[in-house]
């Protein structure tokens, strides 16, 4: 004990109950938020310029029946909002995305974790998994129609399959990259297999799993919409193919806008989760 009392005599501030090098910054509002503000301002400006150019050039540079124009798209959205088309179809697609995503990511994370924990077994399966992964998922649609009909199930499964591989591969990679030294540390503390799995492998593979969960989001949407494009009578994919079939380009673009809004919201939600789990990483390493 005496030694530490001596240390505190030579450097009292280091024992003062807080890190000695933590100084208040007193930054102005602009210093703290300036960068974020400029980035958002830049994004807003880009949207305004793009939409403005589109609106203005439509009709003389491009043929409206092919490219439509923002005002027409807006009118279509307002109409669809009024007659309920927008909400009914969005809700169908959203359900397919959510169920497909949950099913695929749950199965992918669980299987990735379990299989990668048995390295030899994983090696045996590896070429088969990669072969399945390489199949374009659209190619499965006809088969799924035969198996499950053209209802929602088929879209959910198509989304789930797409999501599954991304989450599975990323989780498995995370598990296999666990630092040996950390596992040894737990063994030295007397920890068994369960401790190693829960206290080292799980948190350490979290980064890989989250990467998988994140990149998989747009793919859930892709899976569901492709399913709808192939065969359906409801959903946003159906709305696109139906609008295109009647040469309603404004309708196609309106649906695309809705799809990107859905994608943005889903991305935002996973971003929140990511932020919570990776607090331990230095700021630079966070995306």
């Amino acid at each position: 004990m005496s030694t530490m009392t001596e240390t505190s005599k030579t450097s009292p501030e280091s024992q003062a109950g807080g890190p000695a090098n933590a100084v208040p910054l007193n930054r102005t509002w602009w210093e703290r938020n300036g960068r974020t503000t400029s980035i958002w301002a830049g994004r807003a400006a880009l949207v305004v310029v793009f939409v403005g150019l589109w609106e203005l050039t439509g009709g003389w540079l491009f043929d409206i029946s092919f490219t439509s124009r923002p005002s027409a798209i807006w009118t279509r959205l307002v109409e669809w909002n009024a007659d309920g088309t927008l909400w009914v179809n969005s809700w169908i697609t959203l359900q397919e995305i959510i169920y497909g995503y949950l099913l695929g990511s749950f199965a992918g994370a669980l299987l990735g974790f379990v299989l990668a924990s048995a390295p030899t077994f994983y090696k045996v399966l590896d070429p088969f998994i990669m072969a399945l992964y390489a199949i374009p998922k659209v190619a499965l649609a006809p088969l799924f129609i035969v198996w499950f009909g053209i209802g929602m199930d088929m879209k959910v499964l198509l989304a789930a399959v797409t999501v599954f591989f991304l989450v599975f591969l990323n989780t498995a990679a995370g598990v296999r990259e666990v630092d040996r030294g950390l596992i040894d540390a737990v063994r030295l503390m007397g920890g068994g297999r369960a401790d190693i799995a829960l206290k080292v492998v799980l948190p350490s593979s979290m980064t890989g799993m989250l990467t998988g969960l994140k990149v998989a989001i747009p793919y859930a949407l892709i899976g569901a919409v492709i399913g709808e494009l192939v065969a359906s009578n409801r959903g946003l994919g159906y709305l696109i193919s139906n609008s295109a079939a009647t040469f309603d380009t404004a309708g196609v673009f309106a649906t695309l806008v809705v799809l990107s809004v859905i994608a943005a919201i889903l991305n935002f939600l996973v971003g929140l989760l990511d932020h919570r789990v990776s607090r331990w990483k230095p700021a630079e390493a966070r995306s």
Binding site: D179, G181, L182, D184, A185, V200, P203, W280, K281
Partner: peptide, 10 residues
């Protein structure tokens, strides 16, 4: 051990 094995997430 010679190298650090603190859990980075704790």
């Amino acid at each position: 051990t010679q190298s650090d094995t603190l859990m980075p997430w704790r």
